[in-house]
Design a protein around this nucleic acid. Sequence first.
DNA 1: TTGGACATGTAAGCCGTTACATGATTAC
DNA 2: GTAATCATGTAACGGCTTACATGTCCAA
Lengths: 185, 185
Amino acid sequence: MEGIKTYKENKTRYALLGILTVCECTGYDMKKIMENSLLYFWSESFGQIYPTLKKMEEERLVKSKEQVVGQKTRYLYSITPLGKKVLQDWLALPPAPEVIRNELLLKLFFSQPRDRQTVLEHLARQKQRVIENLEVFTATRQQVSSAKDPSQLFRVLTLEYGLRTLRAELDWLEYAEQRIADLCL
Amino acid sequence: MEGIKTYKENKTRYALLGILTVCECTGYDMKKIMENSLLYFWSESFGQIYPTLKKMEEERLVKSKEQVVGQKTRYLYSITPLGKKVLQDWLALPPAPEVIRNELLLKLFFSQPRDRQTVLEHLARQKQRVIENLEVFTATRQQVSSAKDPSQLFRVLTLEYGLRTLRAELDWLEYAEQRIADLCL
DNA sequence: TTGGACATGTAAGCCGTTACATGATTAC
DNA sequence: GTAATCATGTAACGGCTTACATGTCCAA
């Protein structure tokens, strides 16, 4: 039974290939790009990035250019035509349903009214995070949406997704805090 | 440097302990409970569940009762006082920020206007899933929220979270479809 | 009688993070 | 000078899914 894909596919390669369609950059840069701004919906660790880049170079999906600056060496990666094709093929495949795991909700679900102080603290911490993310997203949209370039539409849409789900979460957090406060009356 | 927790903690045990605070049940039941209705925000595979239950029994967090029905043997698990304490301690710890990975958004982000047909198909498929989930959640809320039991508050809140974020996602999906349709004009 | 749900379990093997290791460069 | 950032990489190790394996019970 050769040829049957028996294991869940690793998506790291596609995230990296995708970034390389936007710009030539180093592994380090790719991490930054994921952390900052737009790729809030994806993350990778260096422990994944560097070995994956090596493998992809062997497979001719990317190529690297050694850059020596002073004493320092860095590797600028770029995508090959084969890499572009592999990425395109993957983009056309239906995304797998997401496996959702939400630790905050799990804790909430198993908490009792007597735990409400800790629950409120968990909610407050989460609210802080959501507000910070919302600020970043709002600022980013200001910059991006002014450019009416249709080639940017899909990127604007991912940002919009982030904004809307974060706002829904913030609303819920405030609703939840209120409902818990009502318990004490 | 003994005693330093060097690796990301496994949360399977807490999900299982939590379920056991609600009812005595088998590993098989626990999987069903996660799949159905309320635990939509958590999932585990049998490959995790059964070995974890074994380990937890050794650690005296749970105990099992062998039930022989006809030719069939099943193991009914229940939580011990130690298990309750371990769960309580975990509930009080601040949840770690979630690592978000959204394959649909990743694909969207790297798609170009020429790919809009496939993107629309991806969105339609996702919309179908969201609508189905919304129906389940709405039906569940009808049953649950009629019970005004304050001990159920946190569970109702997790359901409410699901409803609100799903609705936000549905709104976004429709908005996105509209924006993409506008491209063709 | 046959398919689906109930029920338990193991092994293979990739996934992914964390920790470790190393060193240059830049900004304060 | 010194801390933060740039920059690359490896090893350990648990996480987790998938596939495999086995068998019962019940309903159509």
